[in-house]
Amino acid sequence: MSNQSTNSAGQVHHLRRMATVWVIVSIIGDVLFSIFVAPHVPPGRLTETAAKDQTDFNILFEMALPVLFGVWIYLSYALYFWGDKRNPNPAFSGDAARTNMKTQVSWMVVTTVTVLFLAGFGTWALIVDHGSGGGQGPNPAFAPAGGLKAETAALLGKATWAPGSNNVLPIQVIGQQWKFTYRYPTFGGFESSQLILPADTTVAFNVTSLDVIHSFWAYQLGVKADANPQVNDVAYTETKNPGSFIVRCSELCGIWHGSMFNNGSVESQAAFEQWATTTEAANAANTALLPAFAWTYVPSANGAGGSYYPTNDPFSAVETYGSKQPS
């Protein structure tokens, strides 16, 4: 091997050698990744949304591996063969060393095509997966069928969900320093610190906050949506099988941000309905004290401690959270 580097220019096809190694290593790498790693890549396959996010990650990774290998193989080859000890007299210089139109153009074409493909694929996935579980704000651009209708119905108190109804289930997520609570408008608007979801259902999370910005990250569901005060941030997920998941806050929200997490679970539709109706009945007295279901809330001055100024605006059109205290 070593004397080949002293051959005159053009006799050793460095790039052909590297390309051969690259193709082999890339194929092996991608196959090994697909078999051994890809099925376990976060966020897992608990929901349809998560599964699609996982597939997107895997496709990106399978495209990234050859890029990494390409540069690594080139670097290793260059450092091994073209060090000043092995290659004391560089064989070419002048214009040929300074520029090479063919290389430059093909490099630009390859990177541009790759990038445009990635952007196109990402856009397609985003649209098909109804926003891929990301927070879309109050006016979701990539809503699933029936999603927008369920939103309107929930606000009017007319949203319904029953096992087998195939309706979109709206759930409100309320972030505050430093916990998440959940309101179920289809079950009388009760509020719970537990997040229970039915299987095989499209869920619309309406995420808002009472104080600072939080981020509702239901890890295994493939959902992440910022909880902004006075903003309704909608994110969709399609649940499949029963299972449990963890919810963490992923936007810095103050000193106890690190401990702002809880667990939730996906139950069968019948079990979910039973839990929801039981909780609705058990919480009826408390629900009566809650503000009417709304997209956003303003906390009272002596409520969650999230008000900015000592006096609250008495003419506010928004529901004031926590103003009705049991006497």
Partner: peptide
């Protein structure tokens, strides 16, 4: 060149909205 390659390639993951759902803020 070694480090920035890893930084750059992972940047593409972050820019992909579906993957961003999992990796954003973590």
């Amino acid at each position: 060149f070694f480090n920035f390659l890893i930084g750059g390639v992972t940047g593409v993951f972050l820019s992909d909205v579906p993957v961003n759902v999992t990796v954003h803020g973590g």
